[in-house]
Design a protein around this nucleic acid. Structure first.
Lengths: 321, 321
DNA sequence: CATAGATGTGTAATCGATTAACTAGCGCAC
DNA sequence: GTGCGCTAGTTAATCGATTACACATCTATG
């Protein structure tokens, strides 16, 4: 910057003013400065700028699992929305691991992100408190924690799950296997509670960990126990369940009906296409980013509750009639 | 930091030494400082530190498309490897868009990442030159550019594609549709060249853009032209092609044989499971991160060329016998 | 014609760390 | 007791920007 100033025959203050579009500099000085910048190929050091201004124009996003397309879609939506407001997004991948999540959150705070979006790995409010204590704007996405004190953006699948339950019961299923998410995540608990509630005593629950492998194992257990219908509470466990079904040479929906929480583009390519509870991922991501930007802006955004929808495609068999 | 120093009754220099594990401070002073840090909940400002040390312990990764599971897997591998070396990764999503890619690269440079991993959206070496001119360590991943002057990490699919071609020809296919990637990407060009070369005059090529929609369109065109086998040059176009095949009520492999470049977990759940050319994504990501870290370390890593493998699963029909 | 006000630039403090150069304190040998 | 060598710790410069304040110049006004 000093070089640029010298080159243009002005002070660094003037260079800075030109860079930041202040009113002061004469059109003529401005031209000279811009020319010098161009000539020297100067690019301002964002670190120095941020140090001085205490603003990084950056949002942190800590997600549970980058390989889960559900979160990848959210990440992309967040990034889109942020970019359109002149913000950059730094993505941290927690791998469904609370410790790694905490590490990432701290790293991001150390780097002074202007705000943080978090898909918490579990219920524990400790990390959320830590962030809030630091005074950093925080929005929770998809999942919440106990006694959350910050805005939360999520999708409500109650209606879809209730309707799903009604159909399964109506079609005469009496042993319905629920491949549930971890008890210590809000989504895991809530979805399971709603579904089992609606199923009356017909539900058999096995808990997985939102990963493919646990889906296979849960499916195996449930099928062994005589389940004639399976509901997987996220797409990776759904993938695992489907693998197990195929491995046993069973037919969907003839031998076992299947529904999955979270939609995926390839679900409709299967035979039969998979019936899902589809969450509005893009809207969730965008809404979360907007809430966070509002918070950064000093406003107090409300919680956002979007609605997940039941999409019938055939994998429930008669229950879809 | 000043507060901590005061609290512990030492100077900021001493605090800094404790923080950085220097030899100087007495165990006793160290204790006092650590206690003060704990008590005040002090966290060092990474911006200030980086400004002073000119090192951010951060790698930039600009990928073509976050929604493409191939790149998501790579991103995860890069991140894993980087983390195990104490580095953080900032991911930028270029969305197969050269302009957005350039914007991201510049943003990352402005933030003084210690090194950059780039999956270039196209052939143009301008951006690579710009980065190199800035003296920032750079490694290209998956794709290369014209006259690249930096290390490149990629997978070689020639053997797999040649063997694939031989099988298709051997099984008597005479109109083989190739759903190719963009001409202005190295992977798009090379894969197509190898495959069409090996297919002799039997190939019909339609270019897509590595996205699902273009895969459907290309498939539609090729099927209309009488193709009895399709090869999609990346998994998203493969997804599109499969959708088109299903939409027309055609059977794989009876009506049309199908192979896809890039493997996906759900490919084996389809009926029939899809035959693919599988790239070693995790190894690619790790190798790229390692090369970049070596470069940052002042060493000169060689290019890495891993091998993609043909995985036969049934979607080629007789060609697999 | 002196002066108030507006306008454009420069000077220097500041953000929060690191670190070279220096100083104070201590022990030991002669 | 003096001097030398160590060690532990301090002072102050520095990284590269922003910005309050001071200053110079130029109009407009009474």
């Amino acid at each position: 910057m000093k070089d640029v100033a010298q080159h243009a025959g002005v002070s660094t203050a003037t260079v800075s003013r030109v860079l930041n579009g202040h009113a002061a500099p004469t059109p003529e000085t401005r031209q000279r400065v811009l020319a010098a910048i161009e000539e020297l190929g100067y690019r301002p050091n964002a670190l120095a700028r941020s140090l001085r201004t205490t603003s990084t124009q950056t949002l942190g996003l800590v997600i549970s699992d980058l390989l889960n397309p559900f979160f990848a879609e959210i990440a992309r939506a967040v990034e889109d929305e942020a970019r359109s407001h002149g913000y950059c997004v730094v993505i941290g991948n927690a791998d469904e691991n609370a410790e790694q999540e905490a590490t990432y959150v701290r790293t991001l705070l150390d780097r002074r992100v202007d705000g943080l979006l978090l898909c918490p790995a579990n219920d524990d409010p400790a990390l959320v408190r830590e962030v809030s204590a630091g005074g950093v704007p925080l929005v929770l996405l998809d999942r919440t924690v106990r006694e959350a004190t910050c805005p939360v953006v999520r999708a409500d699948g109650s209606e879809a799950l209730t309707s799903l339950a009604r159909r399964l019961v109506g079609a005469g299923h009496t042993r319905i296997g629920v491949i549930a998410g971890p008890q210590n995540t809000s989504t895991g608990r809530e979805r399971t509670a709603v579904l089992t509630g609606a199923l009356g005593g017909l539900a058999q629950v096995v808990h997985g960990d939102f990963r493919q492998e646990s889906g296979s194992q849960a499916a195996a257990r449930l099928i062994d126990d005589g389940a004639t219908a399976l509901v997987a509470m996220d797409n990776l466990m759904g993938l695992g369940a489907l693998g197990e079904i195929r491995a046993r040479g069973l037919r969907v929906p003839h031998d076992v009906a299947l529904a999955v929480f979270d939609d995926q583009p390839w679900f409709s390519l299967l035979d039969p296409p998979i019936t899902v509870v589809a969450q509005p991922t893009v809207e969730m991501g965008r809404a979360a980013a907007r809430s966070l930007l509002a918070l950064i802006d000093g406003r107090q955004p409300d919680d956002v509750r979007l609605t997940a929808k039941l999409v019938l495609r055939g994998s429930l068999g008669e229950a879809e009639l």
